[in-house]
Amino acid sequence: MKVLVTGTAGFIGSHVALKLLARGDEVIGFDSLNDYYDVNLKKARLARFMDHPGYTHVQADLADRAAVEQVFATHRPDRVVHLAAQAGVRYAAENPHVYVSSNVTGTLHVLEGCRHHGVEHLVFASTSSVYGANRAMPFNEHQATEHPLTLYAATKKANEMMAHSYAHLYGVPSTGLRFFTVYGPWGRPDMALFLFTKAILAGEPIKVFNHGHHRRSFTYVDDIVEGVVRALDRPATADPAWSGESPDPGSSGVAPYRIYNIGNEQPVELLRYIEVLEQCLGRKAVMEMLPLQAGDVPDTEADVSALVADVGYRPVVGVEEGVANFVRWYRDYYRGDAAGHFVAPGVAGFRTAMLRRSNAVT
């Protein structure tokens, strides 16, 4: 297949691109390479597959309507994996407009591209944060999600509703995946595991909110990618069992649309997560215990039975294995520089590849 993947310089998007290329798909990568966090890390991710003969890179902003339209018109992808977004729950308090521009307007442009160019299936990223004020554990797709606690979650809930409307009005098969706390090699520097590792190696204290009593369905990135690709291969359909009454929030009934949780079913307390990290690093953390932050929820727990039933897969990597893999990657990438100043050799490869692809933005 020819697959458009948005956010290929991102954490999950780069892993998805590699997976698709490895199995023989052609990938059109789309990313703005913005400076929300270290651009060199983004370039190093891209360098892993920039020279692959099946990969074409487009550097542009999803909020640029003309650029998105050009990508669809030029490359005519069979399917789309839409992962690009302004990430980070807390950054929305500082810069709310970028969340709407990227996550809402950008997603509208992707939906329009799918609508006008006959895309067979759209898979898009949502988040466990949409469960918001809900406290019924485990979270499942049949529960209502009308009470988000952050703007980030609200934009992702908007994405789900927008995709449903396009599935219903224009027959665009759409599958949304609610990710639960993804971690692993090549992760984002603003996420807990990255922040904790950097601080512990530097002998600096780590901020532990809710006194470490959060419970999270920490999900290893390879598990997420396997679920994304399996979902991509199974286009959503309308629910044949729908009775014409109240639609199921997870499957609609009236449209080729589906929502799945994708996360580890075994939640882990944050203090245990830190303990595993300490063991992998061979160092103890200095913990600054703090109260629950505004917008945070005490616990998340994923019910992935629908994903298991429909695509035959559930996440399997535990935190002991997953954190160890991240630490090995981190030490290799930064070559022992706890301050995180080292630029990985892959960046040079990215620059060379970009020079060879003089039409990379077209």
Score class of each variant (00 low, 15 high):
residue 27 V to K: 03
residue 295 G to K: 11
residue 77 P to I: 06
residue 87 A to V: 15
residue 175 T to K: 05
residue 156 K to P: 04
residue 342 F to A: 14
residue 68 V to H: 06
residue 121 H to D: 08
residue 71 V to W: 06
residue 144 A to Q: 13
residue 140 N to A: 04
residue 10 G to F: 04
residue 126 S to A: 14
residue 161 M to V: 14
residue 347 V to M: 07
residue 69 E to Q: 14
residue 178 R to L: 12
residue 23 R to T: 13
residue 45 R to Y: 07
residue 259 I to W: 01
residue 289 M to T: 00
residue 104 V to R: 06
residue 282 G to W: 11
residue 339 A to G: 14
residue 157 K to N: 09
residue 74 T to H: 12
residue 50 M to D: 08
residue 8 T to E: 05
residue 249 P to A: 02
residue 99 Y to P: 00
residue 202 A to K: 10
residue 352 T to Q: 15
residue 262 I to C: 09
residue 115 R to M: 04
residue 57 H to R: 10
residue 209 F to A: 13
residue 26 E to Y: 03
residue 215 R to L: 12
residue 239 D to T: 04
residue 237 T to N: 01
residue 281 L to V: 03
residue 200 I to G: 07
residue 249 P to T: 08
residue 54 G to L: 11
residue 49 F to A: 08
residue 349 G to Q: 10
residue 278 E to G: 10
residue 353 A to R: 06
residue 44 A to C: 06
residue 206 I to A: 08
residue 80 V to M: 05
residue 148 P to K: 01
residue 47 A to I: 03
residue 126 S to P: 09
residue 176 G to P: 04
residue 109 H to D: 03
residue 15 H to D: 09
residue 106 G to Q: 11
residue 242 W to Q: 03
residue 45 R to C: 12
residue 280 C to V: 08
residue 266 Q to K: 14
residue 317 V to M: 12
residue 266 Q to C: 09
residue 173 P to I: 00
residue 298 P to R: 11
residue 36 Y to A: 14
residue 98 V to Y: 04
residue 43 K to N: 04
residue 249 P to V: 10
residue 351 R to E: 15
residue 3 V to H: 02
residue 191 M to Q: 14
residue 326 F to G: 09
residue 185 P to T: 07
residue 3 V to L: 00
residue 2 K to Y: 00
residue 7 G to W: 01
residue 14 S to Y: 00
residue 324 A to L: 08
residue 278 E to C: 10
residue 29 G to S: 10
residue 121 H to V: 04
residue 150 T to K: 04
residue 76 R to W: 02
residue 70 Q to W: 11
residue 144 A to M: 12
residue 33 L to K: 08
residue 202 A to L: 03
residue 110 V to S: 05
residue 325 N to F: 01
residue 255 A to K: 03
residue 214 H to K: 05
residue 68 V to R: 12
residue 266 Q to T: 15
residue 268 V to P: 07
residue 173 P to K: 00
